[in-house]
Design a protein around this nucleic acid. Structure first.
Length: 270
DNA sequence: AAAGACACCTGTCCGC
DNA sequence: TGCGGACAGGTGTCTT
């Protein structure tokens, strides 16, 4: 479900409800997520929340003594509900707050994760090797160009690699490459610096626009208030195989690259 | 070191 | 209607 814009939308939505709150309880109904929810998470009880941030697609809830690290996987979502609201199927964990609200994780496929880390958060093994944030200055054409030299991988798989740049998932990879006019199957190492200039720009554009629209709702994404995202109507190629290209009217094609469906226009993208 | 396959899990949709 | 199979917004891990 969530790519960077959806995680950012969630982060912004939950932050005001969490800042300054004290965690009054942690209830785990289903500990079997991608990794088992650690027993030490219960030590978050009694701690006060000082910051709610995002790194890549990881949400970070910083408390006095440690950080709760949440990944939404493919199907996860977070909502704030009143503490008397009964949990439904796949509502795996509640973090109860002094306000009387619960931060509730819903995740049917259970590819998500909830972890606890007491050291400097950047040292967490899942975070320490991540590439730059696409909306920050460390991410640019020079970075993409240098990282890609010698790589034979398809450029789409390359930009979806979190060690190169975080947050570019399957939807926005196809969209960015379409806007940049680059074929997704092109070898990353054979793309010019000039074309990476364009690509770094379209990646930033697409992600920023999607955040402004509250993310993309394809099936069931909703923000922490239960509202859908509206970027789906801006998608130019994703999910549009067989339909007319918005630029040239050729039929949009689909091809599996790196085991992920990839959408493109073979006339506009070279 | 890099690239590809596979794994995790549930829900939905499509064709027969 | 039922059933099997493919597929879905992610990413760590294992194998080449």
């Amino acid at each position: 479900m969530p790519e960077l814009p959806e995680v950012e939308t969630t982060c912004r939505g939950i932050r005001p409800h969490l800042l300054g709150q004290t965690i009054s309880a942690v209830e785990v109904r289903q500990p079997k997520l991608r990794w088992p929810i650690p027993a030490e998470l219960s030590t978050a009880t009694g701690q006060t929340i000082h910051a709610v941030t995002r790194r890549g697609k990881y949400l970070l809830i910083k408390t006095d003594t440690g950080t709760i690290l949440i990944h939404l996987g493919m199907s996860g979502s977070l909502r704030l509900v009143d503490n008397h609201q009964q949990p439904e199927k796949h509502d795996h964990i509640d973090i109860a707050l002094s306000s009387g609200k619960l931060l509730r994780l819903h995740d049917p496929r259970r590819f998500g994760a909830v972890l606890w880390w007491t050291e400097k958060i950047e040292t967490h093994p899942l975070l320490s090797k991540l590439g730059p944030e696409p909306l920050e200055t460390a991410f640019d054409d020079d970075h993409l160009w240098r990282q890609s030299r010698g790589r034979k991988q398809a450029v789409k798989a390359f930009i979806m690699n979190g060690h190169i740049v975080v947050g570019v998932g399957n939807i926005y990879a196809s969209e960015s490459l379409f806007r940049a006019g680059i074929l997704p199957q092109r070898q990353a190492g054979r793309i010019s610096r000039q074309r990476y200039q364009r690509l770094s720009q379209t990646i930033r554009e697409v992600l920023a626009e999607a955040i402004a629209q509250g993310g993309t709702t394809l099936q069931d994404f909703s923000n922490s208030d239960g509202q859908p995202g509206y970027f789906a109507q801006e998608l130019l190629v994703y999910g549009r195989e067989g339909q007319d290209c918005v630029a040239c009217s050729a039929k949009i094609k689909i091809k599996v690259i790196g085991q992920r469906a990839s959408f493109y226009c073979s006339k506009c993208q070279t």
